[in-house]
Amino acid sequence: MTDIDEALLIALVDGELDEVTRRRVERAVADDPALAERVEMHRRLRERLSDHYAPIEMEPVPAGMRALLNESGKIVPLARPAASRWRSWSMGGAIAASLVFGLVSGLGIGHLSNRPDGPVAIENGAMMAQGALASALDTQLASAQADAPIRIGLSFRRKGGGWCRSFQGQAVSGVACREGEGWQVQQLVPGAGQGTAYRQASSGDAQVMATIDALIMGDPADAAQESAAKSGGWR
């Protein structure tokens, strides 16, 4: 019994022993209740851990992650996290969005909008997409945008009518909705290229998802609906 150490017992539970060693350890365990108890303890621990984390694998993955992987041709419907989590997300996002809006309108947008190549212009008191952002919103399909500098996430109809699209770029990400012949920016958050800490990048995504959730009516467009909407001039 003395040559059976903890590592061997654990390897038995983990199914890592070769046939000969396994038989030897199993025999020793069968002859020694103290060893058997330790094996049982390790089995229970393994089971408890794997049971504890197993439900995560069954959950629908968050929409932000899906949107990230959505360049493969089809647009997967928003998978919603558990309701309570989603609600608290939306609230946090709304607060954060207003903060971000205050910040950009106070500091950033003035500069951005004074430059004709910036993504946003102020027209009649509203933030309107211009330049590369406007043309991405006009023409780019989420299903075909291999290396575009601005990526379209989801296209969807908003409550009350009209198309909206989420976008993600190096400098800014956000959501814009069709207004007349242009795109009114509903939300602007720092883009994927800002900051190296992953927390910052992904909290922007959560905010964008919260905005989408507040605006969206029904499901996001699939590739065919998106293409049809583009052909129809997003009306």
Binding site: I56, V61, P62, L68, R199
Partner: peptide, 24 residues
């Protein structure tokens, strides 16, 4: 992805951190 989220959750202090990690 479902397995990656699970791994992220088991590394992180809570689920929210886990999803941030997975997204990153």
């Amino acid at each position: 992805l479902p397995r990656l989220r699970r791994f992220a959750a088991s590394l992180s202090r809570d689920r929210a951190d886990g999803d941030d990690l997975c997204q990153a």
